[in-house]
Simulated assay, not measured.
Amino acid sequence: MPASPSLDKHTEFARCLESNKVGTLAPFHWLALAFKDIASAPMLSLIYGLVFTIIPASIMYLVFYSGTHLVILPAAVAFALIGPAFASGLYDVAWELEKGHKPTLTHSLKSMFRNPAGEWGFAILLMVIMIVWMRLAALIHALYPNVPDPTFEQLSAFLTLGSIVGGVLMAVVFAISAFTPQIMMERRVDIMTAVVSSIHAVKTNAHAMFVWGVLIVGLVIIGFATGAAGFIVIMPLLSYASWHGYIAIIKTKKARGYE
């Protein structure tokens, strides 16, 4: 029996999901909704917040007490593999609240296995990009002036190339990761469909996503400035807000009621 058109469409590889257009300041609304989610599920938010606090705190501890930056790469790779999985748990909490259900730790943990091939494939993709980023940084460091007190002019080539490469890679990572985990968890599509759809959504909402990117960087800086303690609140906040951004931007056949 031939497959139905709806099934063919669902299993189509590397398709692009349509996107809505949101206002430039929409990310502030996502954060406001995220605060409501934290208030609605404080214990689960605290549990996941502690997990996300331990990881960067461990990285900071290793760098500080080992006296070498060589531990950053393996620690960052471990975070790239583990982080998206636990973020899925927070997305599930926000999704359950959206549906009017009471979220539970068991249900949120099961979300890590809703689309294992896609979710772990995405984690590996982030790991590969991170390794490439680290290697490029090491190569660029060779341009650092080999003199005691380099002038700004002597540093210009190093700073310029480093800023360009870092900026491009940061933009790429942001574009592919903005909505990819949420799409894979809810829609259970292949990783390429999720990545292509995320890039398209970011491109369609460039102004709003720029604001969202600035907010993420600002909150992460605050998290590290507090010795990683701030991540207890910041990581659940960013994860819930990311879910609301996904709801607002990625089109669905039926209107979502929790935006």
Score class of each variant (00 low, 15 high):
94 A>L: 03
194 A>K: 03
142 A>P: 11
187 R>Y: 12
206 A>M: 06
14 A>Y: 03
169 L>Q: 15
198 S>H: 08
138 A>H: 10
51 V>E: 08
38 I>H: 06
47 I>T: 05
95 W>T: 10
193 T>W: 07
179 F>C: 03
147 V>Y: 10
193 T>Q: 07
204 T>E: 14
98 E>C: 10
68 T>R: 00
124 I>M: 09
132 V>C: 09
242 S>D: 01
148 P>K: 13
14 A>N: 05
203 K>C: 12
200 H>K: 15
26 A>T: 04
34 A>K: 04
171 A>Q: 12
84 P>K: 09
50 L>P: 01
1 M>Y: 09
163 S>T: 13
142 A>D: 15
87 A>L: 13
66 S>T: 14
24 T>E: 07
115 N>P: 08
48 Y>S: 08
130 M>C: 08
246 Y>P: 00
105 L>R: 07
156 S>Q: 15
169 L>H: 04
45 S>A: 11
145 P>T: 05
20 N>G: 11
134 M>P: 09
20 N>V: 09
251 K>M: 12
72 I>C: 08
52 F>Y: 10
173 V>T: 12
116 P>M: 04
252 T>A: 05
79 F>H: 15
194 A>M: 07
235 M>S: 02
132 V>P: 06
133 W>V: 03
166 G>F: 02
97 L>S: 06
188 R>G: 10
157 A>C: 07
224 F>Y: 09
78 A>P: 04
2 P>L: 15
244 H>Y: 09
257 G>R: 01
65 Y>W: 11
211 V>K: 03
176 I>D: 02
132 V>F: 12
46 L>V: 08
158 F>K: 12
84 P>R: 06
121 G>W: 00
31 L>Y: 09
250 I>V: 14
191 I>S: 01
236 P>G: 08
237 L>F: 00
106 T>I: 11
250 I>Q: 02
115 N>E: 06
112 M>K: 06
206 A>L: 13
239 S>Y: 04
104 T>R: 07
159 L>E: 07
112 M>W: 04
29 H>T: 14
96 E>Y: 03
